Computed example of a mutant assay.
Amino acid sequence: MNDLTDKVAIVTGASRGIGRAVSLLLAMQGAKVVSVARSTDELDELAHKTNGLAIPADVADEADVQNVVDEAIRHYGHVDILVCNAGVGSFNLLENNAADEWNRIFDVNVKGTFLFCKFLVPHFKAQKSGHIVGITSDVARRTFEHGTVYGASKFAQDALLGSLRKEVRPHGIKVSTIYPGLVDTYFNESKPGNPDSEKTHLKPADVAQAVRYVLEAPAHVVVDELMLHPLTQEW
């Protein structure tokens, strides 16, 4: 298994939910974590717990993303892992979605992944190693009512990661995609801890363990895609 000790990992959407769980778990495994989100208070608290670096940023802002990558490399000398976790969503009939909502969802879910990959792939190519983990959704592989905008963004993110996987594999770079089902987080204005979600939703820690699993796979093994569902969830 790959040892994560002293590996430098950038985690987006790190202040809550899945991103926070991933950051904490990677730090426990010895990684140096660069936590990225817009919420400065929660980021500072997380950086204290992970003994890592916290950088407030908008993942859809090119200058912000460039700064995160530059600062991580300046601080640690290199980056080994990128976890693209930041995501937003809303669920409405198509005609009830405003164009601004489309832009917001695609900016975070797709453009954010694109920008971080754009600025880190040259670094990974130069060092002939690196691992990108994209956390998408099971709706990247299916459609559902009221999911026109969110689902479209996840299909696009999945296509981006799948195409990138083929581009960078000859350079020794891995790209893994994780497709969680329902997760008990703050996503879409919900709050975690609802008793009704106990049997139907994954926990953020479940997704974090999946990230750990793909990152710790032996060097000669590539886990391209990993689907996660609670036993009770229909798919």
Rank of each mutant, 00 (worst) to 15 (best):
G147P: 09
Q157L: 12
V175Y: 07
H220E: 15
K199V: 04
E189P: 00
E225W: 13
H220W: 15
K203A: 14
P180C: 01
G193W: 06
G193R: 06
P195S: 01
G181A: 02
E167T: 00
V222R: 15
T185F: 12
P170D: 11
Y150V: 08
V168T: 02
Q233V: 07
Y150L: 11
L164R: 03
Q209I: 09
V221S: 10
P195D: 02
M227P: 01
G162H: 03
I178D: 00
Y186L: 06
V168C: 04
M227K: 13
V207L: 07
K199Q: 13
Y179N: 02
Q233N: 09
L231S: 15
D196P: 00
F144C: 04
V221Y: 11
G162Q: 08
P192Q: 03
T185Y: 11
P180R: 00
E216V: 09
D206G: 02
H171M: 08
A156M: 06
L215P: 03
K166Q: 11
R165A: 07
A219V: 14
N194E: 13
V175E: 05
P192F: 02
T177Q: 14
T143W: 13
V175D: 05
L164I: 01
E198M: 12
V207Q: 05
V168R: 06
V168P: 01
R142T: 12
L231G: 15
T177I: 15
A140I: 01
A219F: 14
T148A: 15
R169G: 04
H220K: 15
E145F: 13
D196I: 03
A217Y: 11
G193L: 05
V211L: 12
Y179K: 03
R141P: 00
